[in-house]
Amino acid sequence: MSDRLIRAICRNAEIKFTAVCTTETVERARQIHKTLPLATAALGRTLSAASMMGRELKDKNGSVTIQIKGNGPLGAITTIGDCDGCVRGYLQNPAAELPLLPNGHLDVGSGVGRGYLMVIKDIGVGEPFTGTTALHNGEIAEDITKYFAESEQVPSAVALGVLVDTDQHVKQAGGYIVQLMPGATDEDITRLENNIAKAGAMTAMLESGMSLEDIAHAVLDGFEVEFLEEAPVTYRCGCNHAKVTRALISLGKDELTRLRDEEEGIEVTCQFCDKVYKMTRDDIAVMLEAATAKEENNG
């Protein structure tokens, strides 16, 4: 089944719901970045969150960037979700490993460690909105729940999961975000909390064969669910030669002069998809001319 995202609301309560299946997307990220299971789980959870949060944006050029910077062995994690729900991302140490927890689960919390989570929402115009919170426990779902409460003042429940098979490929991945809007009653909150506890882990639901719609009905049991939309999700990097060239020009005249004089050519690797762009000395000279003209015009 191809990856997809759904959004829903409750007609008889102030609740909205988003869920995503990202199994193929996270497997693609694993293949690109050659992640071991701990890194696969951490990156996959963050990709799922970015997909759902990106889809919430109304602007067609909008995107959500999630940056997690903890002191654990995984290092920094960065993911970007576009407004259509498609994502890309990378993490600092894809080969990090830790012993399994006593319950046999991957120790993502220790892998991430303590630090902070930053969310950058860019709608394509004006200054992006940035919210930062301290990491709660490094498990990512709880950290994003904390972000929603502290930075956006929206009571939320976030579930994220990645099930890695014995051969290290991704067996299941996905997540959901359920949020309370102003007007939600104490009765609604209690029912929702009971439903979430009863539903269990996201990957367990996916592994049992439940569709995203089934998961929505389980989490929102007792509410009148109205499905608003569904959309395909995939791992997508928008890098190209022109963007890499602009990035190199931004290095400035002095650095480009050094590269032209000291290097026969350079290779630039995209952090999101590992594609390699080769630039010759002549290419660098052309970029140097552009950087020089830009600095003169700005001066």
Rank of each mutant, 00 (worst) to 15 (best):
M1K: 08
D3I: 12
R4A: 12
L5C: 07
I6M: 11
C10W: 09
I15E: 01
K16M: 01
C21R: 15
V26G: 11
A29L: 10
Q31N: 09
I32T: 05
G44W: 08
A50Q: 05
M53D: 09
M53H: 02
E56C: 02
L57M: 13
D59Q: 06
N61C: 00
V64T: 06
T65G: 11
G70P: 07
T79K: 02
G81T: 13
D82I: 01
C83K: 04
G85S: 10
G89K: 07
Y90W: 15
Y90D: 05
L101Q: 14
D107M: 06
V112W: 06
I120H: 01
D122Q: 10
D122L: 03
G124Y: 08
V125R: 13
T130C: 03
T133F: 03
L135D: 11
F148H: 05
E150F: 07
Q153A: 13
A159Y: 08
L160Q: 09
V162C: 12
T166S: 14
T166A: 14
D167R: 14
Q168K: 06
Q168M: 10
A173G: 08
G175Y: 14
L180R: 09
M181P: 00
G183H: 13
A184C: 14
L192E: 01
E193C: 06
A197L: 06
A201C: 02
M202W: 00
M202P: 02
M205N: 11
L206Q: 13
G209L: 14
L212C: 12
E213P: 03
I215D: 06
A216R: 00
H217F: 11
H217D: 12
V219K: 06
D221H: 10
G222T: 01
F223H: 02
E224T: 15
F227G: 03
E229W: 07
E229G: 04
E230K: 13
P232V: 04
P232L: 10
V233W: 10
Y235E: 08
C237M: 15
R260W: 04
D261V: 12
V268S: 12
Q271R: 03
D282S: 14
D283C: 08
A291D: 12
E296T: 04
G299R: 12
